[in-house]
Computed example of a mutant assay.
Amino acid sequence: MRITPHAQDTGGFFVALIEKVSETSFDPSAANGPAWKKKKMFKDEPFTFLKLDDERWNDIRNHYGVDESFLYQNLFSRRLESNDANSRQLFYANDAVKNFVKENMSKVSIQNAGMKMFSRTEGKVENTRFRLSQEGIRYLFKFMQKQKVKIGTEDMLFMLKSDENLVPLEKLECKGDVRKQQNGTVVVYCDDDEPVCTWVGYHTIAPYISKEERLHLLRMMGVDCAEIELLMKSKRKEKAAQDREAAWARKEEAAKAAEPSSSSTDAPESAETLEIPEENVQEMTE
């Protein structure tokens, strides 16, 4: 759980530390429940942890220069082992969570665990199949030796405040150091505690973070974000209004399409000319 005390809006979420003070008797069979209930349970995707000398890890380690002390076998995907090689995301869990998941995966329903650390990319620019995720970079950063650049505070503020998704490298003082790295995912940082994942192209750089993450980093750097927050709220309200109008328009179109077409009234047939016998015509003229 991520907590931001400075926001003062945790909304009733709390973290509790539970300490086991004594042993207790527990019947494992009671947790399984009746067989008829187990059949109706939703089948969760399994947790498949990386094995020793996994090919994907060799690719990641060589590209990002990850230290040998990193416990890569704690990385896992949410795919069956037979289809694990095609997984699009890799998550990381510590030893305690890993052991709990492996021991209880077949006994209890585990929806989520760990933090996302790598995502597969199909881009032709990067020299690796996986890019870094902002969610897990704070832990991975200390193990990395490549694809990271220390930049100045002004450059970091410029990127975070920019309205452009792709920031031109020419506008940054750190452009020389960034261009020395391979294209693709590059981690930039002013402080080791707040690294930022970015995507670097030939001429641009783009932070791989959400708007909320941008605000968090700006606050940590002492920036007043009141105007930015108001702008974000106004944009969201404007988008919500546009979505409502579009929904009403679709509803009206559907209603019109469902209405029965009015039957067109047939034009009255032209009156046939009456043929008057010649005898009657003579009588009328006389």
Score class of each variant (00 low, 15 high):
residue 159 M to D: 09
residue 242 Q to M: 12
residue 99 N to D: 11
residue 26 F to K: 15
residue 230 L to Y: 06
residue 237 K to E: 12
residue 114 G to W: 10
residue 217 L to T: 11
residue 113 A to C: 01
residue 153 T to R: 02
residue 215 L to G: 09
residue 189 Y to M: 08
residue 233 K to Y: 03
residue 174 C to H: 04
residue 284 M to V: 11
residue 18 I to V: 13
residue 58 N to H: 02
residue 130 F to R: 00
residue 25 S to K: 06
residue 56 R to W: 02
residue 109 S to R: 15
residue 280 N to Q: 12
residue 279 E to G: 08
residue 51 K to M: 11
residue 44 D to Y: 01
residue 130 F to T: 01
residue 161 K to T: 05
residue 23 E to Q: 07
residue 42 F to L: 12
residue 66 V to T: 06
residue 258 A to P: 12
residue 4 T to D: 15
residue 202 Y to P: 05
residue 159 M to L: 14
residue 208 Y to L: 07
residue 210 S to D: 05
residue 232 M to A: 12
residue 156 M to A: 10
residue 39 K to Y: 02
residue 139 Y to R: 06
residue 163 D to H: 03
residue 245 E to I: 04
residue 245 E to L: 11
residue 141 F to S: 00
residue 136 G to S: 05
residue 244 R to Y: 08
residue 202 Y to H: 04
residue 202 Y to T: 14
residue 219 R to P: 14
residue 60 I to P: 02
residue 206 A to G: 07
residue 148 K to T: 00
residue 61 R to N: 00
residue 164 E to Y: 03
residue 165 N to K: 08
residue 155 D to L: 13
residue 267 A to Q: 05
residue 235 K to R: 05
residue 286 E to L: 13
residue 260 P to T: 11
residue 24 T to W: 02
residue 180 K to Y: 11
residue 247 A to K: 14
residue 4 T to N: 14
residue 56 R to E: 04
residue 50 L to W: 13
residue 234 S to C: 10
residue 103 E to V: 03
residue 242 Q to E: 14
residue 42 F to C: 13
residue 157 L to H: 13
residue 69 S to I: 02
residue 272 E to D: 07
residue 235 K to A: 10
residue 48 T to Q: 00
residue 34 P to Y: 14
residue 163 D to W: 01
residue 96 A to T: 15
residue 176 G to V: 15
residue 200 V to E: 10
residue 187 V to A: 03
residue 43 K to T: 13
residue 252 E to G: 11
residue 168 P to D: 09
residue 146 K to D: 05
residue 218 L to Q: 05
residue 33 G to Y: 03
residue 51 K to C: 12
residue 54 D to R: 05
residue 244 R to L: 13
residue 126 E to T: 07
residue 119 S to Y: 02
residue 106 S to F: 09
residue 32 N to M: 05
residue 45 E to D: 09
residue 182 Q to R: 03
residue 16 A to W: 10
residue 284 M to D: 08
residue 70 F to N: 05
residue 92 Y to S: 04
residue 255 A to K: 03
residue 172 L to P: 07
residue 60 I to A: 01
residue 283 E to T: 07
residue 164 E to T: 01
residue 116 K to F: 00
residue 17 L to F: 06
residue 214 R to M: 12
residue 51 K to I: 11
residue 151 I to M: 09
residue 247 A to P: 07
residue 130 F to D: 00
residue 3 I to H: 15
residue 87 S to M: 10
residue 269 E to T: 04
residue 4 T to V: 08
residue 65 G to L: 02
residue 208 Y to W: 03
residue 214 R to E: 14
residue 19 E to D: 06
residue 155 D to A: 13
residue 135 E to S: 14
residue 10 T to S: 13
residue 55 E to G: 00
residue 46 P to K: 01
residue 218 L to S: 02
residue 133 S to F: 04
residue 278 E to T: 15
residue 110 I to H: 05
residue 208 Y to N: 15
residue 248 W to A: 10
residue 166 L to A: 13
residue 59 D to K: 02
residue 11 G to R: 06
